[in-house]
């Protein structure tokens, strides 16, 4: 179980996260939705300590991590036990797909090279990229890069996987292959925080949905509750706009 408490973050006077409390059960897939600029990315980045908030603690595995600190053993623990998938993939450019997945295994998990290679190949296979193991990121399409990035993250067996709009930098025809892999990962029982604008996907893959507005959680429930009976006026308005845009939908 992961518990986030009193998470607040502001940029100058702009309050981006306002005293967030969030308890995530093991195996939960939590979809985070909300208007642009409400702090969804900031939330994930604070949890992974890529951003330092003004206040906040994370309880994880019996450990209490003060994420307002700059560095320390607990913070390293937090980063080692959470994984991040970025909107723009951020694969290591000078490394092949295989080396990208092996990197954390060797450097952080201290695996031997052979062991890391074996594990990395399995993970690449899982995301359907084993034939591209020797390819460099610049040789791969966006969808393929994102699948490798997913393999890189899950190879570390994170207790919490953070995904920040993993498909929104992709051409529409590449979105499906990445969503398929994410669904597969979710089915394996990984605990995930998933920020996405793919409403249909969130609805089907998540077992809990959170609506974030102006740095606060204004809706929190099962997908059915949030999508079909939103309590908050802001949420209803958001959905109206979303449906009006009439995007091509992901079909399960």
């Amino acid at each position: 179980m992961v518990k986030i408490e009193h998470l607040s973050k502001k940029y100058n006077d702009n309050i981006v996260l306002d005293d967030i409390h969030l308890e995530i059960k093991k195996g939960d897939v939590v979809g985070i939705i909300g208007p642009s600029g409400t702090g969804k990315s900031t939330l994930l980045r604070c949890v992974n300590h890529l951003e330092i908030p003004e206040s906040g603690v994370i309880h994880m595995d019996g450990k209490t991590v003060d994420i307002t600190r700059k560095r320390g053993r607990e913070l390293r623990y937090l980063q080692q036990h959470t994984g991040m998938v970025f909107q723009r993939f951020y694969l290591f450019e000078k490394k092949t797909a295989l080396e990208n997945v092996m990197e954390g295994l060797i450097v952080v998990k201290k695996m031997s090279k052979e062991e890391a290679k074996k594990t990395a190949m399995q993970e690449l296979d899982k995301v359907g990229m084993s034939s591209w193991a020797n390819h460099y990121p610049k040789h791969l399409s966006g969808g393929q890069q994102q699948r490798v990035a997913l393999a890189r993250a899950i190879a570390m067996k994170p207790d919490l996987l953070l995904l920040d709009e993993p498909t929104s930098a992709l051409d529409p025809e590449l979105v499906g292959e990445v969503l398929d892999v994410i669904r597969k990962v979710a089915e394996e029982g990984y605990t995930m925080l998933l920020v996405s604008h793919e409403m249909n996907f969130v609805r089907h893959v998540a077992n809990r949905v959170i609506f974030l507005d102006k740095g606060r959680i204004v809706e929190d429930g099962t997908p059915k509750e949030v999508f079909e009976r939103p309590k908050n006026e802001r949420t209803r308005e958001f959905f109206r706009k979303m449906y009006m845009m009439n995007q091509p939908e992901y079909i399960i």
Binding site: R88, G104, V107, R152
Partner: peptide
């Protein structure tokens, strides 16, 4: 981004510096 990705894996700055 690559530096953040390395950090997110749990690598230290020195490890990131040397390897990435």
């Amino acid at each position: 981004g690559q530096i953040e990705a390395a950090q997110a894996l749990g690598m230290t700055y020195l490890q990131t510096l040397r390897r990435i």
